[in-house]
Write a protein that binds this DNA or RNA. Sequence first.
DNA 1: TGTTAACTGTTAACGGTGTTCACTCTAGGC
DNA 2: GCCTAGAGTGAACACCGTTAACAGTTAACA
Lengths: 234, 234
Amino acid sequence: MVTRDRRRAATLAEIKAAARRLLVSGGTSAVGLRAVARELGLTPPALYRYFPSHEALIGALVTDLYDELTTALMDLAGADDGDLGAKLYLLANGLRDWALAHPAEFGLVFGTAVPNPEGDEHEVTPGHQAAMRFGGLFKELVAQIWHQKPFQHPADEQLGTVLVEQLTAESEHFHGMPAGAIYLSLNYWTRLYGLICMEVFGQLHWVLPDAAAYFEAQLYEIGQALGLDCPEPG
Amino acid sequence: MVTRDRRRAATLAEIKAAARRLLVSGGTSAVGLRAVARELGLTPPALYRYFPSHEALIGALVTDLYDELTTALMDLAGADDGDLGAKLYLLANGLRDWALAHPAEFGLVFGTAVPNPEGDEHEVTPGHQAAMRFGGLFKELVAQIWHQKPFQHPADEQLGTVLVEQLTAESEHFHGMPAGAIYLSLNYWTRLYGLICMEVFGQLHWVLPDAAAYFEAQLYEIGQALGLDCPEPG
DNA sequence: TGTTAACTGTTAACGGTGTTCACTCTAGGC
DNA sequence: GCCTAGAGTGAACACCGTTAACAGTTAACA
């Protein structure tokens, strides 16, 4: 019987589900090793049969959240068969909606620093792979947009040799797009991420009580930079 | 004698200095109540004569860091008597330099969510006041730039009534600037903050090994939006 | 000046955390 | 049917923030 492995996988899933529950209800600090064990009616040391440390458990949770978000956004964008611009618009709005609906998860996934300061051996963890899959969503879509209708982009001379060199190094991930186009794509992601971070972390409440209108206006702006005729705000 | 208050103020400063030291050397998690007490040769309960809780100690530390950053940037911008655009450029670069030089402090000050979800009684803490002073730095400078040489800005119709309403509510903080101009100013801050956050938190390392060139290009771009002739990148 | 009150620090303790070790018991494989 | 690997337990360790009761010093006031 393989019921042994099956049982192990089941409890492993239960552990992560309990951790997720605690994260949602009480924020990042609430998902402690002992609390998770309590949730399952187990003693704390029992969890060490499944995760080598509390940190590893959190890491697995982050990986799951990344994948959940990725598939959710894929479903969202896949359902719409319209033009690619509308797809990107859906993706951006979907990410914001998810972040606002799950602020604790967002804070855990995107608010914690990536531990890659001195990049000797990358030691590509499953969490990193999940993050790459997530990032690939946007890269892929932007590359499709570019190849369908190339948008105006700054020339290499405007960007400077250093930046162009770094951007062209990423060209393979963008299906051979030129540096200027990758630059604009990076802008899109940077501004989107920054906007959502500020809204979720409450840095925007002090000037804008409800950032929805501002977000929409910004989405229109950054979409235009990619040659998209986004839905106009207002 | 007032030596009693003097002594109290001295130890209070020592406590915060020790906390700061721990923050720098070991990150946010290293600045614990017991660790701070250990650093001063005191027992943990002694600190409760100075701060009502560990959280209050952290709050005081954040306030100090805000003020330190604010005065540092004021000195930086005050020294240069050139045009206001150069001042803003110095400010933005100064903020980035500070964030990269003190990543732990930056993470503590800007990376933690502002606890203002349902804004009933704001209960304006010293930390909030310090944050306002810091934000005021940029608002003030941008307002000066606007009044010296008004830059092109989107019309109200382009932004939509909801957004215009919110922006004009902030008009007094921007010395009576119109909504479109405030919108562009907000863009400047949003993009600057997002960029620095991503760089410090390592979200940019995976695509750009060294974000300096990208940051410079972005600074040029967002400065142009405010009608400034920034130093060109490259 | 002597008394009193406030202030600063201590020790002991409580409940909480992540983690390790030695142990038991049960289920699967030979 | 033995035997081993795995799952789970209880006790313990070292840490954490916090509280309560207590002691010594110092400022203020009658």
